[in-house]
Write a protein that binds this DNA or RNA. Structure first.
Lengths: 194, 194
DNA sequence: GTCTATAAGGAGATAGAC
DNA sequence: GTCTATCTCCTTATAGAC
């Protein structure tokens, strides 16, 4: 059995995702949790604090630790396979329930002054970008792939995956989607291989 | 001198972009316009109606008419140049003031149930997708480019441009940005040419 | 077309009993 | 830790004078 604080966080995540920060009231949250509004204040001192805590929990400490699993890195000497699996892994991650929530909240709130919480797509994305850029830079150094602009390479690799994510906000696992991701990886590989 | 209705639409666009639909009140709008809240209701019957009218005005009737200018189509027989100019044109369009507003509002509101207005990234994007897919399909038919999956091609062409747009929500003209767009077009062309 | 005044309810947040 | 009760301000919207 979860304690009330956890339930508040869980329910308010759902509400913020569906209705946005401004569109969600303490009243809404209390109703979903099944307590009075005043009881919320035993656990959080303000609505903003709920939001901040929730963003904090949704944000992973280390992205590479999540994405670059041993299983994935085992294939690093086979760049074609590695690129395919890397793409699948990133999309799978973006398709996870908590990451779907985070992306929706970031895209929904990034521009607004309603919270003083600093969230922006740029800072969200930069973790993925730096990681991907590093991988391609290393691949260039080891002559696995052609020398070219690593920034553009990383962006064009990730952009397609993120677009698929945007186009399918509620998508589950889907064979056609995986086919497209693999097709993208294949085209990408044809383009960068030496 | 604009009339009040136009000023309301103009000011509320700015507010919806900055603070979102739920985060913007009739009071905010009235204040920006310089009239009382009640005076708003001489022009619109509800906040929702302002929003609907504004989305309607921001949505172009025909996308191809805006993007596929004669100047652009003159180069169609030179696919490398056409692709470069097409990419530049789309980004320039996405970077225009009214389109920046529309994109921000769509990304900010698409998931929420706060308005009954149906806006989603998917339907916004599909106009660009269909147009781009058609162009590449024609290019394949005329053997200007290699035969491959036109869906994946169109998405990967547009995805990079849209990602740049997302990464730079307030960007103005920028040489580095144009260089990246051109680099993307070049890589893309190398990949699809026969 | 804009104003003042006001309704009727929702917002975030607190005090104090249990 | 949750409740009832309440505060104060904000919300959308309307009525009616000018």
């Amino acid at each position: 059995m979860k304690n009330t604080k956890e339930i508040i966080l869980q329910k308010s995540t759902g509400l913020f995702v569906r209705k946005g920060y401004s569109g969600t009231s303490i009243r809404d949250i209390a109703k979903e949790v099944g307590i009075r509004e005043s009881a919320i204040y035993n656990h959080f001192s303000s609505k903003k604090e709920i939001f901040a805590e929730l963003i904090n929990r949704l944000t992973p400490e280390s992205l590479p630790a999540i994405i670059l699993t041993d299983e994935l890195l085992d294939e690093i000497s086979n760049p074609e396979i590695f690129i395919r699996n890397f793409a699948r892994k990133i999309f799978e991650h973006w398709n996870s329930s908590s990451e779907r929530s985070l992306i929706k909240i970031i895209l929904g709130e990034q521009f607004y002054n309603n919270t003083e919480i600093d969230i922006s797509f740029s800072s969200y994305y930069s973790g993925y970008f730096e990681m991907t850029k590093l991988i391609f830079s290393e691949m260039m150094k080891h002559k696995f792939i052609k020398k070219s602009d690593a920034d553009v390479l990383a962006d064009s690799f990730l952009a397609y995956l993120f677009l698929l994510r945007l186009k399918n906000p509620d998508s589950l696992e889907n064979k056609e989607l995986i086919r497209k991701i693999d097709e993208h990886s294949k085209l990408f590989w044809e383009n960068v291989k030496r």
